[in-house]
Design a protein around this nucleic acid. Sequence first.
DNA 1: TTGATAAATGTAACCGTTTACATTTTTTTT
DNA 2: AAAAAAAATGTAAACGGTTACATTTATCAA
Lengths: 350, 350
Amino acid sequence: MSKKKEVTIYDIASALNISIATVSRALKNDPVVSKRTKKKIFDLAEKMGYRTNHFARNLRNQKTNTIGVIVHELNSNFITSVLAGIEKVTTEAGYDLIIAHSSESFIKEIANAKNLFHKRVDGLIASLSLDTKNLDHFKSFEEKNVPVIFFDRVEQEGKNTVVVIDNDKSGYQATQHLIQQGCRRIVHITSSLKRNVYSKRFKGYKDALADNGIPYDETLLIINDLSESAAIESAMKMLKMDPLPDGAFITNDFVAAVCMRTLKENNIRVPGDIAIVGFNNDAICTLIEPALSTINYPGIDVGEVAASNLINHLKGVGNMQNTNTIIIRSNLIIRKSSLKNESYSDKRKN
Amino acid sequence: MSKKKEVTIYDIASALNISIATVSRALKNDPVVSKRTKKKIFDLAEKMGYRTNHFARNLRNQKTNTIGVIVHELNSNFITSVLAGIEKVTTEAGYDLIIAHSSESFIKEIANAKNLFHKRVDGLIASLSLDTKNLDHFKSFEEKNVPVIFFDRVEQEGKNTVVVIDNDKSGYQATQHLIQQGCRRIVHITSSLKRNVYSKRFKGYKDALADNGIPYDETLLIINDLSESAAIESAMKMLKMDPLPDGAFITNDFVAAVCMRTLKENNIRVPGDIAIVGFNNDAICTLIEPALSTINYPGIDVGEVAASNLINHLKGVGNMQNTNTIIIRSNLIIRKSSLKNESYSDKRKN
DNA sequence: TTGATAAATGTAACCGTTTACATTTTTTTT
DNA sequence: AAAAAAAATGTAAACGGTTACATTTATCAA
């Protein structure tokens, strides 16, 4: 029942009557150790059930081999694909991951950052919470020269490397598409404009309107959080508009899905009465009815790029100084929810 | 640009002209240190930007303060709620989390287990992959007396603690409900019967049929994985059945949603022609149309219970020997997708 | 065979904590 | 004021690796 003593390099060394230095080198596959001794050591280590003590190693090496990740929410299709992308790259490179999430709270994000800082992650990948006010909590990383890469929700003024899509263009494309479908009163449902993703999509929305000679009407802008109740609220606001809007560009698929459901419950036809375009290309898009047009935002690519950039930096390959902004390709996916104009649809589909 | 040297207890000690032992004790808030010295030490530590070196501490303490988690999939509503539950409890107790996922592959699960074992997690929480053949890869934990708790997908014969719901009863309830709605040819779409969750739900399905005098028809059993393509295949199989089934108990909400879509695309009405009950109570349930009846499987509770049990065990409170199986409450949620019988629906709703 | 060179192995300091045990300082008792 | 007891602090040895530098052993040319 009692915990068996752990095997150390000392045990292996004394069993084979060699020095710990040789054992240590052999286990790291140092070419300086002869093949014969290496084999003996490997075999015995295996037989004795040796496992490296990462604490001893990290203590000596002064690095943790760990990368911290702060995301604003776990329960999101997009975020889990980003994490998958990060994980793929980091495990391949032999790094551990500590994943923290802020639940969209500034306070929690600060706590997460502090925690990861004290855990001494070698690098950090983060996406800001909705109500993050400033980036002071990342300063300590900067001071200790721990690289930080932001993705999705970022602050672009700083000198941090950021991985994003062209939110501006995406917003423009979504809106332009709705206009081409004949929409003239297009609602824009989004979240805090303090966050780059939303402000840029908003800019794209306004630019598309302007380019089509449609005046921007601020009563058509609805800002809310990303919860189900907020989504229902937003849909209710749309329903109260007079005249009714004929299109909606909603910057989150889940919110779009809930809105659509609420509108339908109130006998509004989609896309007949109101055409809808969402954002992210989550799995729900093709499960709801009508299928949701959206902007494809490939999380896995974002994660992979962010992680491999960070790791390259840690390894000293390439410097982050000259790559400040990395833009991942995104694109509009047209489905039934925005197709008022069948002839247009035919053109696109064939 | 160069990395500033880290502050250690030596630096604090020599700055205050006291011994490192006192500093170490003070920082752990040991009552043996006088209030005066403690204050001096805390203040200076803060001012110098001291942060504990967890490696040195763990090396000395011979524990990692880390809990490993192996899940079969990250991209799942249920799993992310379990993780949220685990995280809540573990961070409160000051433990770190390493999350690994097997992507339903036995090979990867073995690799994950080996990795976490080498990282020396203090405890492990795991759910088996679909094609896990045996539990040999967990033996090393047993040998070193590292506690392992399984949840959801478990192997009940062993002497491990497991956290589950009453899958048997849930399967029975789902099927019974369909029968009460008038269904007589009920398809059961599920996954590998090697996994307890599916075999037990299957047993519940059969028992409910038997109790209602409906003979079990093995052509109505469809076994598949949980992918979108598999779900479409399953729906196609249903469509080819002659006569058509009039109900379906599907052990996964996502699969159920895809099946429902496929059926509808083929002009089958739900619940009119085929009533459907899913499993898990994912967010999609109320977004698709008709809303999906399902078994509510509260992941967050599962995670919290598993984690707090593990931690209690690690702290020596309560022994895992006498608590082998923990059953979390689950319940049937009736929505439109299974309501053929309006009067019954009214009864339930009022 | 010898000396030079290369290859393999060994020695010992170090990474930053914790803690049993020893010592010093302060407080209390008589 | 001295002795005894309690409180505070200090000393030094772990914990298990890594690696600069030193030493030994093997290889090869002359």
